[in-house]
Amino acid sequence: MARFLIRRLLHSVPVVVVSSFLVFAMVAASGDPLAELRGRPGVSDATVALRSEQLELHKPVHERYLGWAGSAVRGDLGTSVGGEPVAPMVLRHLGVTLRMVLLAVVVGIAGALVVGVGTALRPRSVLDRAGSVLSMVLLATPVFWLAGLLKDVGIRFNELVGRTVVFTAGERSPATGASVASVVADRLGHLVLPTLTLALVAMAGWSRFQRAATIEVLNAPYVQSARARGLPERRVVGVHALRNALIPLTAVVATDFAAILGGAVLVEVVFAWQGMGRLLLDAVARSDVHVATGWLLVTASVVVVLNLLADLVYAALDPRIRNP
């Protein structure tokens, strides 16, 4: 197993390196980060030249990349166009996004299990058909549209209860009360809407998947035989069917992870979270090479690690993989 993981990890190294160079080159070619400065009346050429020197704009791209990669290996991701060190900046934004995304994945999986298994037990029932249509509509809805809708619902809910329970902007209120309870309530209040948006979209796809997997497992011989042995239905579904039906879901969740991060970009914009999405959009808008590449490096690493984690879960669930 360990060897398998290490091999997977080694496989992903060239992928990350190549993609980081691609992003570096693309952003570097996307334009001059000082262009707006050049256009500002009153800014002297000398000032632009000084800034350009600091940003090494005169060097060829591959040289700049090598220089950056050299220090990146040592954990220094360079500085942004604005002069801020990139590494702490990216980690800060990563924390914000991961909090939202991981919770969304957990909620999404839980929801998918409940809905998927529930509808699989009664295929073609009204509930099943409703679920099928609903998930189809959810999958066809632009994420930002759904986010905007939930935001509106959230505000109306607050106005109904007469105080702000769920928040629509940012990840926490500035300087809330000192008590642990109020801090937790505040954090959760900020998390509800963005997480729900992401989780709903994820759930829509996963629940259909879980439904199909469950139906297949329920028809499998070993489940039939468990039934024949007279095991109670609850135990048949809960232990035998569910466990095996979880295996394909794990794989899907892992492959969808990058897509969820993509969706998070939009959700972050709608809910004004300063996460990875905002960081990337700003970096691209400013042609900020170091930030964009740092973003990619960290995001790709996270995706790789999470995929590995999924492999581990997969192995734990499926005894066939443990001893290849």
């Binding site: 959230g154 505000i155 629509t168 902007a169 940012g170 300087a175 809910f271 700003d282």
Partner: peptide, 21 residues
């Protein structure tokens, strides 16, 4: 005076309505 960084104009109106700013 607290500067709350909300990069999007549309989200700041919602935040005003929702008593967040």
């Amino acid at each position: 005076i607290v500067f709350r960084f909300l990069p999007d104009a549309a989200s700041s109106v919602a935040a005003l309505r929702n008593q967040e700013v």
